[in-house]
Write a protein that binds this DNA or RNA. Sequence first.
DNA 1: CACCATGTTCCTTG
DNA 2: CCAAGGAACATGGT
Length: 284
Amino acid sequence: MPELPEVEVLVRHLAPLLKGKTIRAINVRRTAVLAPTTVAEFMGTLLGGKFTGLTRRGKYLMFTLRAAGTGDPFLLVGHLGMTGRIYLQRKSAPLPKHAAVAMELGAARFVYEDPRYFGRLTLDTRGPAKLGPEPFAPEFTVSYLAGALGRSAQAIKVRLLDQTLVAGVGNIYASEALFRAGISPRLAARKLRPAQIAALRRAIRGVLALAIRRGSTLPLDFSGGPRGDRLFYHGSAPVADGLAREMLRVYDRAGLPCPTCGAAIRRLVQAARSTFYCPACQCR
DNA sequence: CACCATGTTCCTTG
DNA sequence: CCAAGGAACATGGT
């Protein structure tokens, strides 16, 4: 589910729902997702606290809160890993099987669930601090990108997954951006010509912006419960799987025709991750 | 049973 | 010391 666009859509959805809500009780069912924060620290800091805002940095969710009593502001950092979800449910609803943390906010309950438990909900802010520029920030310029790619011999597809290069591009949108830019995923980063670097920057911004605008190209489901409850977000409902698929031009389309030229899309493995590309449109 | 999976970190190898 | 590759984390889908 989560690369930058999915997190952005989630943040926009949750921010107004969380603002002003007070944490009245906390249930930690998987202590590992708090790491390196301990359960005692987590409880002590969050209990009685109030949500003041929510923003995104790369693939991280940055919850801002004010502590009970002192009113001191602090940050709660969320990351959805591969399969994490955050949503609100009614307090009377049953907790899902893989709920890692639940927080009672009155009528609503904040649920962080993750079947694989790769994600995090923590007070440790070192993760987002290491990130490179936001793709939409003015600092993400052609000259920045040219400098950051530098003399690296690493394949450009693999470089794009480095969150210190640019924040928020994951395995799906790395393939999609390279397709848009007409660049081979195998091309060494240092071999990109200036025109290709400019095209790649434009493609990254374009593909992420389009995904956000469409509410994401992926079949999202932030609900976790039955439909019809206004506390739920039914992100998946209007986005049929087939329609979502059309948004992705190469990812997971091995053997299918390239939407531009009709050649068969290929899959290759780089750094133990799948890459999809058109051998005809992305020959350089 | 085999293989694949939207992410990040750590370890080994060269 | 650095880069690159792979395994690990834990579970579910096909």
